[in-house]
Simulated scan of single mutants.
Amino acid sequence: MATDPREYDKAMPIVAAHLAKVERAVDRTRGTHAGQPFAAVHQALAEALQDDGAQRVVPQVVEELARQNSGAVTGP
């Protein structure tokens, strides 16, 4: 099944706007919660995404972003 290139052109501004919202939420959360426990960062990030209207993010992505910005220690 081929995708019509015009559909791509129509979708890209929507995708770019959504990604900008996600980036703002992540940056804001990083600024206020960096180094805090995972649960606190995860909750703050989820709330920031909701506030920015970007709550439609894959849960595993939210968890990974929260892990990266928390004080969680990971493997070597």
Score class of each variant (00 low, 15 high):
residue 1 M to K: 01
residue 2 A to W: 04
residue 3 T to I: 15
residue 4 D to G: 00
residue 6 R to Q: 14
residue 6 R to M: 02
residue 7 E to S: 01
residue 8 Y to V: 15
residue 11 A to H: 12
residue 11 A to R: 13
residue 13 P to M: 13
residue 13 P to W: 08
residue 14 I to S: 08
residue 15 V to M: 09
residue 16 A to V: 01
residue 17 A to E: 11
residue 17 A to C: 04
residue 17 A to D: 15
residue 18 H to M: 00
residue 19 L to P: 01
residue 19 L to M: 03
residue 21 K to P: 05
residue 22 V to D: 06
residue 22 V to A: 14
residue 23 E to P: 09
residue 24 R to C: 02
residue 24 R to K: 15
residue 25 A to F: 05
residue 25 A to E: 02
residue 29 T to H: 00
residue 30 R to G: 13
residue 31 G to I: 10
residue 32 T to W: 04
residue 32 T to F: 05
residue 33 H to K: 05
residue 33 H to Y: 11
residue 39 A to I: 01
residue 40 A to L: 04
residue 40 A to I: 12
residue 41 V to C: 10
residue 41 V to M: 12
residue 42 H to Q: 13
residue 44 A to V: 05
residue 44 A to G: 04
residue 46 A to D: 04
residue 48 A to T: 05
residue 49 L to E: 09
residue 50 Q to G: 02
residue 50 Q to K: 13
residue 51 D to E: 15
residue 53 G to E: 10
residue 54 A to T: 02
residue 54 A to N: 10
residue 57 V to F: 08
residue 58 V to K: 13
residue 59 P to V: 03
residue 59 P to Q: 08
residue 59 P to S: 07
residue 60 Q to K: 14
residue 61 V to D: 10
residue 62 V to W: 00
residue 63 E to M: 01
residue 63 E to F: 02
residue 63 E to H: 02
residue 63 E to A: 07
residue 65 L to N: 03
residue 66 A to C: 05
residue 66 A to P: 03
residue 68 Q to K: 06
residue 69 N to C: 08
residue 70 S to N: 07
residue 70 S to L: 06
residue 70 S to E: 14
residue 70 S to G: 03
residue 71 G to I: 01
residue 72 A to Q: 15
residue 72 A to C: 13
residue 73 V to H: 13
residue 73 V to A: 06
residue 74 T to E: 15
residue 74 T to G: 06
residue 75 G to H: 14
residue 75 G to C: 11
